[in-house]
């Protein structure tokens, strides 16, 4: 039976190769690595646990069937899976906005959901892309350590400077800076690895250009 390295690591390429060869352990490893990311982003996007579970299943089954098509030169496995999930989620979103929802748009999580009516003046495609970006970035933020997420939220949501965060939290300025620095570095590293964000939002995190 194939095993990852002792530290639990295995490259995306190796995992995909093993999955293509029918290795269920490698498939389980991929699930354990990326299911939380997919589930979190999809639930934030759809606001519907059942739909989210359906898309997560579809996405991993696509990995099981098409793992041999994975090419790490084109991006990470997480990015590939997010791309597949996004296509399916946006398809559902389009279907829903063509068919007005029967129920109240308020969802059980209190979040925006894909079936919510869209401003007629807005481009539904752009609206979906923006909400997908929001869902994925929020998921990435949720995966940061609590202390890093806290300083980042104060900086972005409350618009506080590093000195103001220090005063607000009572943390030494150096600690605030180092936490913020780690947080933005983690976040940028993750988001750059997910090229699915780039084409529909027009924002390229790799070089900051707008497509």
């Amino acid at each position: 039976m194939w095993q990852p390295e002792a530290d639990g690591s295995a490259s995306d390429r190796l995992v995909a190769e093993r999955i293509a060869a029918g290795d269920e352990d490698a498939f389980a490893l991929a699930y354990d690595r990326y299911a939380g990311l997919l589930y979190g982003a999809l639930l934030r996007f759809t606001g519907d646990r059942e739909v989210t579970a359906e898309i997560v299943q579809d996405t991993f089954l696509a990995l099981w069937r098409r793992a041999r098509q994975f090419d790490e030169r084109a991006g990470t496995l997480a990015g590939w899976l997010l791309g597949i999930a996004r296509h399916r989620a946006v398809d559902m979103h389009r279907a829903r906005i063509r068919r007005p929802p029967l129920a109240s748009p308020a969802d059980d999580e209190g979040r925006w959901r894909a079936g919510e009516p869209v401003d007629a003046a807005g481009d539904p495609h752009a609206v979906a892309a923006q909400h997908w970006l929001q869902a994925v970035v929020r998921t990435a933020l949720s995966e940061l350590p609590d202390d890093e997420r806290a300083v980042l939220t104060l900086a972005y949501s409350s618009g506080l400077s590093q000195s103001e965060i220090s005063a607000r939290t009572g943390l030494p300025l150096g600690t605030v800076k180092s936490r913020t620095r780690r947080a933005v570095a983690h976040l940028r590293s993750r988001l750059t690895d997910w090229p699915g964000l780039l084409d529909e939002t027009g924002i390229n995190l790799a070089d900051g250009t707008r497509g």
Binding site: V137, R138, L141, S157, V184, L187, R188, L197, I203, G208
Partner: peptide, 14 residues
């Protein structure tokens, strides 16, 4: 430019 893009993305997300 990369940091500015990240700033826009996070600001939208939050």
């Amino acid at each position: 430019a990369g940091w500015q893009a990240l700033q826009r993305g996070v600001a939208r997300a939050l």
